[in-house]
Design a binder for these strands. Structure first.
Length: 789
RNA sequence: GGGUGCUUAGCUCAGUUGGUUAGAGCACCUCGUUUACACCGAGGGUGUCGGGGGUUCGAGUCCCUCAGCGCCCACCA
């Protein structure tokens, strides 16, 4: 069974591209791990931290096992509240009481009772007291007297306890210590007997008189019917309450007294608290530390026994005299009396008992193996927040208890995946997204990228196929960008290798390289802060917008020219290489594939020295590092951004005027201080904006504004596009006026800002930045005004 | 009841220590047969950042408060 299902799980994990050392795969019932479990149990036992005792536990009648509090789910459901009479014993009646007359009040005097309400009438069979509030004027006179259990006739005391709320229900409470946690607590306080009235299948047992053998719900019906017959029933009413159900089976869980094994948890819990409080362990996101503290502060002893066939058996042997033998090796005789007639405890351990040992049981503990020395303590624990208590807290407690060290220094918690509207995925809704199907249809990389980029730590994520599709498109973009670069490398065939020194980098070359350096730094920073989604998003934007939409388009042009072809291809290859490295953890398959092709293309090319230090596979290639300081080449970036703005505004105008994209048009620039820059970049501008290179004029200033032209102002640069026949003077005026208004509103805003306290109190660099901006807008506004004239 | 998170474009969501004119994908509209990609390219519209108050030169971001939704924990029979 394990081979089949365990194999399925690891197949899925491999399919997702998890990069694990599969030789170290471990299963919780492996011999080594089992030995660790035995060692852990015996150690705790020898320290007196494990005990066996009666305890009210959550019993699952279907699974026939105890389930932990954490495995119980409460759901609000419709139920019935049953009101009935707890008759006071006749003998206790006041002798001086007057004879009953007609009417209820008198009758009640004659046959006094306490009204009680319950949701589970069958538990009446296990009642051992009736409790009222000691200050309750209605009932306090009954305290110390005796009540009669309906149908059974058993006599039970009436007690006073402040736990009882006078306002709720009837103000009186029946006490069933063996089947209710609160009643259990009250019973212990008052030394009440505990009567179990259900067996392991939740049928009434021998304590239930004539109801013995009935299922709990059947007994409820019958008992109530009989009580009705006997005149003990007051009424029933519908009631909404929370019902405890088993997380696994879904059936109603029954609190029951049972013999179980427990771990005294207090010292382990305190150690676990300290490790997070003093920073030895950090939980990401931080808010879960509070949740963790709250749980450990209120923790109860850990019930570690389970009545299942599946698991590590509890290593305790009993002899007929009841001696217990607890040893690391299976014993052949009783450790106390030597009896050979011994049998092992039937119960197994809670699965989390063994899972809690995982960080070191997998490494050979308790032996001081080389693996244990090298890998323990581990570093990061990555898991879903839903098992913070089940698993993480127990690994921390166990790690500290058995090894004296925190098992890891950081816990990173991810959220749960829901459907696109935030609902839990369930078969009933039909909203389940099967990851295998998604991977088949859209690719593993697309799914991985979606999961990584769409999620923020500790927050649930709504997954939709649409998102995966968008990222499939991205993977396609990576593929095609790769194809372009590889073809570009092939186009160098026959060229002589150049030395680096005579290379002239263009503005675009410098810009994309500087942007890449910024990207490397940003991604590094995002990773440090566990912002994996942000990191992925930035790489996505860089590759798609900066590299593919801008640089590749410019590169096409630069490659036309024999002289600049080689250095352009070099830049293409270098940028692609670095981007693929950054992207690899997100989309390992396609990046590995593209990189492999890139590698072999380079090897055969005149620029093969670019790849001379590369390993055989991207997965083991060095992670990129930026050696350039923050702000490096900021002026080049600013220059290029001006070119981008110019191109965008020309494209914008063309779209507005419906100029066919294939039509190459003329343009005049009045560029002022940017004249040299624009002259150098005129080919770039022409290519990207659809201008005719031979019809471009760039001057510092224009004596005369070209007639019949549309005018644009980008920063301090004026652009004139002679669109004879397409330019309507009136609409041009409107457009320019609109732009002027916009510039003026910026000027207004900035002037207000700079005249306020901002100038004095804000950091000077920031103030200067705003001042520069103001100057820019003023310049723009002046130019637009001139054009309007 | 205690705790915690969410509320940002039509939809699903980013927005890292408070600092430009708040972003993305999808959807929508216009244009495009440029030899990497139509799973594409160019352009376009949409926001009282849930309401109110406060701190600050400056708030989507910090504090208080109210409302709605979700989750965790505890469960008054």
């Amino acid at each position: 069974w394990k081979k089949k299902y365990g194999g399925l799980i690891t197949t899925q994990i491999r399919r997702l591209g998890a990069s694990c050392d599969w030789d170290r795969e471990r299963f919780t019932l492996d011999e080594g791990l089992s030995r660790a479990v035995r060692e852990a149990f015996v150690r705790l036992y020898e320290k007196g931290m494990i005990y066996r005792g009666p305890r009210l536990i959550n019993w699952s009648p279907g699974l026939k096992t105890a389930v932990s509090d954490l495995e119980v789910e409460y759901s609000e459901e419709d139920a019935t509240l049953y009101y009935f009479k707890y008759m006071i014993k006749e003998d206790d009646k006041d002798e001086a009481r007057p004879r009953p007359q007609a009417g209820e009040q008198d009758e009640r005097e004659a046959h006094p009772y306490i009204p009680v309400a319950t949701i589970r009438p069958e538990t009446i069979l296990g009642d051992t007291a009736v409790a009222v509030h000691p200050e309750d004027e209605r009932f306090k006179k009954f305290i110390g007297k005796t009540a009669i259990v309906p149908m059974l006739g058993r006599e039970i005391p009436i007690i006073g306890d402040e736990y009882v709320s006078m306002e709720f229900g009837t103000g009186a409470l029946k006490i069933t210590p063996a089947h209710d946690p609160n009643d259990y607590t009250i019973a212990q306080k008052h030394n009440l007997p505990m009567i179990s009235m259900l067996d392991k299948e939740a049928k009434v047992n021998e304590n239930g008189g004539k109801y013995q053998g009935l299922d709990r719900f059947e007994a409820r019906k019958q008992l109530w019917a009989d009580m009705k017959e006997a005149g003990l029933v007051i009424k029933t009413e519908p009631y909404r309450t929370t019902i405890p159900r088993s997380q696994r089976g879904g059936e109603i869980v029954e609190p029951m007294i049972s013999e179980q094994w427990f771990v005294k948890i207090e010292s382990m819990a305190n150690a676990g608290l300290d490790a997070v409080k003093d920073g030895r362990i950090k939980i990401v996101p931080e808010r879960f530390e509070k949740t963790y503290f709250n749980w450990l502060d209120n923790i109860k002893d850990w019930c570690i026994s389970r009545q299942l066939w599946w698991g590590h058996r509890i290593p305790v042997w009993y002899c007929p005299d009841g001696h217990m033998t607890v040893t690391r090796e299976d014993p052949t005789q009783c450790g106390t009396c030597g009896s050979k007639d011994i049998h092992q405890d039937d119960d197994v351990l809670d699965t989390w008992f063994s899972s809690g040992l995982w960080p070191f049981s997998t490494l050979g503990w308790p032996d001081e193996t080389p693996d244990l020395k090298y890998f323990y303590p581990t570093s990061y624990m990555e898991t879903g927040y839903d098992i913070l208590f089940f698993w993480v807290a127990r690994m921390i407690m166990s790690g500290l208890e058995y090894t004296g060290e925190a098992p890891f220094h950081t816990v990173y918690l991810h959220g749960l995946i829901r459907d696109e509207h935030g609902r839990k995925m369930s078969k009933t809704y039909g909203n389940v997204i099967d990851p295998l199907t998604v991977m088949d249809e859209l690719g593993t990389d697309a799914l991985r990228f979606t999961l990584l980029v769409g999620a923020t730590p500790g927050n649930d994520m709504n997954l939709s196929v649409k998102k995966v599709e968008a990222n499939r498109n991205f993977a396609n973009k990576v593929w095609n960008a790769g194809r372009f670069v590889i073809n570009a490398i092939a186009s160098l065939e026959g060229m002589q290798a150049q030395t680096e020194t005579n290379t002239q980098w263009t503005l675009a070359d410098s810009w994309i390289w500087a942007r890449l350096q910024n990207l490397i730094r940003d991604v590094e920073r995002q990773f440090q802060n566990f912002q994996y989604g942000q990191a992925g998003q930035q790489i996505y934007d860089f590759l798609w917008s900066d590299f593919a939409d801008w640089y590749v388009e410019i590169a096409k042009n630069q490659m036309q020219n024999e002289e600049s072809r080689m250095q352009t291809v070099k830049t293409l290859a270098r940028v692609l290489d670095t981007t693929l490295r950054l992207l690899h953890p997100f989309t390992p398959f396609i990046t590995e594939e593209v990189w492999g092709h890139l590698h072999s293309a380079l090897r055969e090319s005149p620029i093969s020295n670019l790849s001379k230090d590369w390993p055989d596979a991207l997965i083991v290639a060095k992670w990129p590092e930026s050696r350039n300081p923050e702000g490096w080449e900021a002026d080049k970036i600013a220059d290029f951004e001006l070119i981008q703005e110019i191109v965008r505004s020309i494209r914008n105008l063309r779209a507005e005027k419906n100029v066919s994209p294939s039509k190459k048009i003329a343009a005049s620039f009045s560029a002022g201080a940017k004249t040299d820059l624009l002259k150098a970049q005129s080919t770039v501008i022409a290519t990207l904006a659809g201008l005719d290179p031979s019809l471009i004029t760039i001057h510092q200033s224009l004596a005369e504004k070209p007639a019949d032209s549309a005018a644009l102002v980008v920063g301090s640069v004026e652009i004139y596009l002679p669109l004879a026949g397409m330019v309507d003077l009136a609409s041009e005026k409107t457009r320019l006026e609109k732009e002027l208004k916009e510039a003026e509103s910026h000027i207004q805003r900035l002037e207000n800002l700079l005249n306020g306290d901002f100038a004095q109190k804000a950091p000077p660099a920031l103030v200067q930045k705003e001042k520069d901006k103001l100057a820019g807008y003023k310049d723009t506004a002046e130019k637009i005004k001139a054009q309007l004239k």
